[in-house]
Design a binder for these strands. Sequence first.
DNA 1: TAGTGGTCTAGACCACGTC
DNA 2: ACGTGGTCTAGACCACTAC
Lengths: 245, 245
Amino acid sequence: MLKYQRIAEELRSAIEAGEYGPGDRLPGENDLMALHGVARMTVRQALSVLRSEGIVEARKGAGVFVRAFRPLRRRGIQRLASERWAAGRSVWSADVDDRRELVVDGVQVAREPVPERIAAVLGVEPGAPVWVRRRRYLLDGKPVMSAASHFPADLVADTPVVSPDPGPGGVYARLAEAGHAPVRFREEIRTRMPSAGETDELRLPSGTPVILITRTAFTADSTVAEVNDMVLDAASYILEYEFDA
Amino acid sequence: MLKYQRIAEELRSAIEAGEYGPGDRLPGENDLMALHGVARMTVRQALSVLRSEGIVEARKGAGVFVRAFRPLRRRGIQRLASERWAAGRSVWSADVDDRRELVVDGVQVAREPVPERIAAVLGVEPGAPVWVRRRRYLLDGKPVMSAASHFPADLVADTPVVSPDPGPGGVYARLAEAGHAPVRFREEIRTRMPSAGETDELRLPSGTPVILITRTAFTADSTVAEVNDMVLDAASYILEYEFDA
DNA sequence: TAGTGGTCTAGACCACGTC
DNA sequence: ACGTGGTCTAGACCACTAC
């Protein structure tokens, strides 16, 4: 067993045994060097193992801390039921219980040329104009997701879909009123390590992956009304899909 | 901009520009040291950024290589349709096209005490006996998933469900014949960095996350017939769920 | 201001792959 | 045999946090 793995293993079992609880500070790099009689790079490598497992989180100038893990349960199918938004409730309100606070942040709506990746799904020409609604979701003050919804420009022009606050039931209720009610959704899920920009926007501690969800909303005549590109902090979410055999 | 970020950025854009294609070898650590006039630890940190983004993969003694990314598309709902397994087709055969080869590996069936985490979902007492079917799936020779299905012992005793090869339609077809046809499924998705054991079993290059899927199969009387714990190589999969509003 | 983690240097030995 | 990446040492300066 290599030195850095031994040190990582020792800290990991101490955490699992409850010697360090969520939010507790671990021994610092200097402590660990003295304790194990190794060079600083070696303890740093040990800590980097734990960071990359998402178990601990380093805060510059402060120390290394045990991470708390209380994910949101995102019920993929129920949350998008038409009865919900027809009744004026937002999609994301289904994800939280009453004791936690989910707020939406930095809403921006803009008319832009369609990104290449989206054009194919949306079924429009590359460079065609689309309306893009960007926003970020914070749970108890911590960013957990950022999202960018893309709508074909001719579908939503002069509708409340492109207003910063679309009102009760959100954009799906407004699309329905405009005669473009979504009747079917497809969610595509990928996961990978975040880019620098994503780390920044979601304030991710290094070592947590992100989940990428691309949701496509289809109307009754099978046209695409929305392509929503989401980036989720993987540690903050459990995704759930329930369906018949 | 920090040195290691500059070097990482330069390599990343070279890869995106196609100067290095999938499988190509990047300049080695010694080359990069000479090229940028920095210490070895600095180029290593640059490369570790790219590794943690899953863009490149280091092979000891050989070099650093651009990773190929050709994920499987796993259609979560269609693949579990009862018509499929009733017609004698396996669930996983829905995931691959004809040009790629998916093989099942290391099938083990054993009667064991139920793990604590599973007991709660399965609705049995802690320590009660369950039948566990473990196996691994390889795509074109590379492990992409390992899975462990848990069945309540009294439900499957003396049925082909516990035989190494359950036959056409797989265990769901056999459960159906035994009067325990699954009628509803729930899939729970988490994602995190792999443990050492998972890295080993799936032969993961460092820097790729794993996707954990826990599937629960319910019968018509709402009892749980199976809890399937899966570990997927995140880089090998795109998950897809399609459903009505 | 003292201590923390983040970055960086300049060496070293090793196991492993390729040739 | 040689070059590769993996591990490790022993220093250094910096920006940031907490007090």
